[in-house]
Design a protein around this nucleic acid. Structure first.
Lengths: 248, 248
DNA sequence: CGAAGATTTGACGGGCCTCAAATCTGGTGG
DNA sequence: CCACCAGATTTGAGGCCCGTCAAATCTTCG
């Protein structure tokens, strides 16, 4: 049975304590040579033997899965500081493609696993990242399962905004290195619907389009409202209330 | 930040070697007393402090997440042998509800984590299960992202069939302890669409409905064809071919 | 400038959702 | 044993959101 492969293990979470974590995690990679990939280049293919674990130093990757008839799903976007290929499985379950110019390092899966087995500091770190990975996947399942196009885009933009800010981007401005088709395949929509929905949010005064790969957030509250999620702040709330509502 | 929680760590994978794994994994739980839950009872709530890890002994659970307006998403179904609540996070990210009569055991998260830290046999086991969890989540993202109602239901039935067979069920018969509403919330459809699609598959001669909670598979190949996935056998293929098709 | 690709905009149709009602199933009490 | 009821499921009619197809516009780069 072809089973799991972890594609994304986020390295930075936007607080000052992340620096220590980052160096710990990257300790495995830092002796490896830098490698490069051009936009559109595929770092590894779905189905290939999973020989390496990668650490993204610069640039952005998209994680793709394909159906037999050519339909494409993007299960995640990766940015500098993320790792990809962490798994005990022997084949990659997805492809990793460079969105823009990318630099990365790699270690063999074997040495990564040895490091993991022998390093008590590393273990909880990796395990914790994997938990974040599962949480992200579940958020995405919620998004795909029952959100409208407008809610999906708003949720996506909100996440990107938080991610950008965690990485030291300008407050209120979202960088979108990926194309509209990438966004569409990530949100389970078509390119046309993404475009129309961007226009709609823009005409509502919630965002403002800045060129092809930039969006300015004019009303964060408006975005959060459209996203239809529990989080109502820039910071997630731990005191989220429970309601046991049911339809009908 | 409220982040990941692993809900499903499948314990049995249908081969004879699974028995050893199972006893290893359940070694943590086997000294704990048995607990019970009635149909509809909630084992723990989304947002509650995550104090325990659970091991399902008998019966079925549904894993639910709710949106603020009451929309419900089921991110997974659990059966005997599965564990739930494995995570380093301090709050549950989802609710776990009994579908039928359920018996389970629990250990504190603290003791589970201590066991995990000190047991070199257990670690790769848990880590491997987590990988399966992520793989399942990604499969579900593919399903929700771009499959039609018919493909979703076919994929779901195929998975249930494989799971049933792995657990020693009758060949070709699928047990569906959950309601149609559960299936709908799991597949991102409405209850009416699920019902209509079941009827459609039935009238095509691919399945045959056996009462409320049973479905007989008349044509496994037909199901697999409708599911629109790579796997074309009852066993997944490791030699899956890669194609780099793109739309347009 | 010109061409290729990315994005936007428009018209139209279909698949799934919504609302409504009929039917089926299982459990309870007479 | 059977009537009855509540909940689950099925079936039907109609509408809407988003996908499909097509064309215009914008951007980038040789």
């Amino acid at each position: 049975m072809l089973t799991s492969n972890l594609h994304m293990v986020r390295d930075v979470r936007g607080d000052t304590s992340a620096a220590a974590e980052l160096s710990d995690f990257n300790g495995i990679f830092c002796r490896q040579p830098l490698e490069h990939a051009q936009p559109g280049q595929i770092v590894f293919f779905e189905g290939d033997p999973a020989k390496h674990v990668f650490s993204l130093v610069e640039g952005n990757l998209r994680i793709c899965r394909l159906l037999s008839d050519g339909r494409r799903v993007i299960t995640g976007f990766l940015r500098s500081g993320d790792a990809v290929g962490v798994s005990f499985k022997n084949r990659y379950l997805y492809s990793a493609e460079a969105i823009d110019e990318v630099t990365f390092r790699r270690v063999t899966k074997r040495s990564f696993e040895e490091e993991l087995a022998t390093s008590p500091q590393l273990r909880p770190l990796v395990f914790s990242r994997v938990c974040d990975e599962v949480a992200a996947a579940q958020d995405q399942m919620v998004l795909l399962s029952c959100k409208s196009a407008e809610e999906r885009l708003a949720s996506f933009l909100l996440r990107q905004l938080q991610s950008d800010e965690a990485h030291g981007g300008l407050r209120g401005v979202i960088a979108l290195p990926m194309t509209r088709l990438d966004i569409a395949d990530y949100l389970g929509l078509t390119i046309e619907t993404v475009s129309r929905t961007v226009t709609k949010l823009s005409s509502k005064g919630i965002i403002s389009v800045c060129g092809r790969h930039g969006i300015k957030v004019l009303s964060r509250a408006g975005l959060a409202h459209q996203a239809a999620e529990y989080e109502d702040d820039d910071v997630g709330n731990n005191g989220r209330t429970m309601m046991a509502q049911r339809r009908h």
